[in-house]
Design a protein around this nucleic acid. Structure first.
Lengths: 196, 196
DNA sequence: AAGGTTTCATACTGACGGTATGTAACTTCC
DNA sequence: GGAAGTTACATACCGTCAGTATGAAACCTT
């Protein structure tokens, strides 16, 4: 093997483990995925996992954070393309719903996340990613005079909960692509509740 | 022990197991609760559990259904006291949020349910209980001409998702009793989105 | 009351999360 | 540039727990 620094070795293994964990946890769920399975799929053994992560929960948390990072990045990208805060919110809703068509995202973030990490931890992470983007959009819309006064964090949370349900609903639809517009319309309507 | 019929023995043990499972799953979560622990707390052994239930998941499912039954009963009771469909919906929202102050309900229904049973199963059960009451309320309000046309099941689902988030938010508040009115107001506002 | 069925207890197996310990790869210091 | 020490991993092992097999006790049928 070519000579690598410790940092390179460590980073490569860690990154590979997170990617592998994301794939397996996402495909089969947390409970049905053993640490040995993740390690084997990554070409290492359990020892490596426990060297880099505190335990199975910590490994899952890393995969969860990765999902959140990817989601937030996508949301921010499409939001920036919009002209005003309100358009960004509407576009974000649609994008989030589409994002829920990824089975791995649904399994890790929506289904297993709260159970494995607890609600507090999940929301803490989301406040730094997907939920932050939503809240930023609401703040922007409010600054533009389009959004009613009120408890914005709570409001964002409620809408976020509705969107997660919408995403699951969409994924179960016989034809998700066809179901998206109608569902997005209902979600948009939810948002209208807070229009000034 | 006094002589009992088989049906009495069976029903008594089953009921006791469900109640005990509800308590332990609710207090410590699904993963941290062993079948042996439930059996011991109910004064029987694992053999009895596996005689009456297909496995740990089936036992949890029974506890989940029980939670739903209790929730739906409470919601229906308060809804019947209201004068019209819209008032019933508003009262139901408030009652559901209060119901989320029960840690066992949050743990079993909101946190562990989707992960353990899967989203399909959870929603199937909820469609026969809590979600059905919400949908009935929406249908009633619509029949009274107060509720806008649209995909009611999807709408109920979205609102339900928002309410679950609201319930978790409420439970985390430093003073839930004080936080309830504000949160209920935000949730009510969500509902206003569908007012004609 | 004898034989059959239901209800449950006991004994056991395999899988898996986690730990302890050993070893190879890399870094630091002389 | 080699010894000493640290980091990155592998291997072996333990405890826990879901699930199964088997047997005994309670109940039912005739």
């Amino acid at each position: 093997m070519t000579r690598r620094t410790q940092a390179e070795r460590s980073d490569a293994t860690t990154a590979l483990l997170i990617t592998t964990a994301q794939r397996l946890f996402g495909a089969h769920g947390y409970a049905a995925t053993s640490i040995d399975a993740v390690a084997a799929a990554a070409g290492v053994t359990k020892g490596a996992v426990y060297h880099h992560f505190g335990g199975k929960t910590a490994l899952f948390r890393a995969a969860f954070v990765r999902e959140q990072e990817e989601t937030a990045a996508t949301l921010e990208r499409v939001a920036f393309e919009q002209s005003d805060g309100w358009a960004a919110l509407r576009r974000g809703i649609r994008t989030f719903l589409e994002h829920c068509l990824d089975p791995g995202f649904r399994q890790i973030v929506i289904l297993d996340g709260p159970s494995v990490l607890g609600w507090e931890t999940v929301r803490e992470i989301e406040y730094g990613h997907a939920l932050r983007v939503l809240l930023d959009g609401m703040r922007l819309a409010q600054a533009e005079g389009l959004f009613a006064e009120g408890d914005l964090p709570a409001r964002a949370q409620l809408v976020f909960g509705a969107l997660c349900e919408g995403g699951m609903l969409l994924a179960r639809a016989a034809d998700p692509v066809a179901a998206l517009p109608g569902l997005a319309a209902e979600a948009d309507r939810l948002l209208e509740a807070f229009k000034v």
